[in-house]
């Protein structure tokens, strides 16, 4: 119990080492969520809107990739970015950049599949309308993503949550280097391995608090948006 308070005391005192770890966690996972959203949302919407050969295969593939184990992603990115690997010359291994790449790969399928689920019902409703105004593919995509935006935000949040919570991928490609690539989850794993179980648990509650704050913020924004629409 005492260590639980101790960890929160570090938060209250804005302990620089802890602040840096929290900041890096947010930086890496938010950047990865942004990149994954840029890739996953248009692709997910496109999978919902258009039918083309092999679409079924792609749908099954994207939903299956939601089950990608972080360790496998981490290992693949490690082999890719290792000096012995194809992208080794970039020198990205054991940097936050490598962690962002790994998390982006991990959560893109989640955002893609959930976006597709959000857009799919709307497409049926809008098909006739979009056809009547002779909407081009770009307009079609943008309209449907915009109208599915609450579902899409949920998709991004699901991705962000996964990125913030995972430890397997960032541990392998980041190396858990003190002051450089150490994030919340790898710190929790490290403290557990030192037998400092209460401290590890306290750090876990901090991580959860951050996740709750981010989700509450976005949920609040969405509610504000809905109310604005109604009163418009």
């Amino acid at each position: 119990m005492e260590t639980l308070f101790e960890a929160w005391h570090l938060v209250a005192a804005r302990d620089p080492a802890l602040m840096q770890i929290v900041g890096l966690s947010l930086y890496v996972s938010l950047t990865a969520s942004f990149l994954a959203a840029c890739i996953g949302i248009p692709l997910g919407a496109a999978l919902a809107i258009w039918s083309f050969p092999l679409r079924g295969v792609l749908v099954v593939l994207s939903t299956s990739l939601m089950a990608l184990p972080p360790v496998v992603v981490g290992l693949s990115v490690y082999l890719l970015l290792s000096r012995a690997g194809p992208l080794g010359a970039l020198g990205l291994l054991f940097t936050p950049g490598a962690m962002i790449i790994a998390q982006t790969i991990l959560i893109t399928p989640i955002i893609l599949a959930l976006t597709r689920e959000a857009v799919l019902p709307l497409r049926r409703d809008y098909d006739a309308l979009l056809l009547s105004v002779d909407a081009g593919p770009r307009l079609k995509l943008v309209t449907l993503i915009w109208d599915a935006r609450y579902g899409v935000v949920t998709a991004i949040l699901a991705g962000f949550g996964r990125a913030l919570a995972e430890v397997g991928a960032v541990l392998i490609v980041g190396g858990n280097i003190n002051g450089l690539t150490r994030v919340m989850t790898t710190t929790i794993a490290l403290e557990t391995s030192k037998g400092n179980l209460e401290l590890a648990l306290a750090l876990g509650t901090i991580l959860l608090t951050i996740a709750v704050s981010v989700n509450a913020l976005i949920h609040g924004l969405a509610r504000f948006g809905r109310r604005y629409e109604v009163t418009r």
Partner: peptide, 19 residues
């Protein structure tokens, strides 16, 4: 000094790869 702390086997592998 950026320390990547892993088991000795994995540390040797990382160094073998030039990382």
């Amino acid at each position: 000094v950026r320390v990547v702390a892993v088991g000795t086997g994995q540390a040797l592998r990382i160094a073998r790869n030039g990382d």
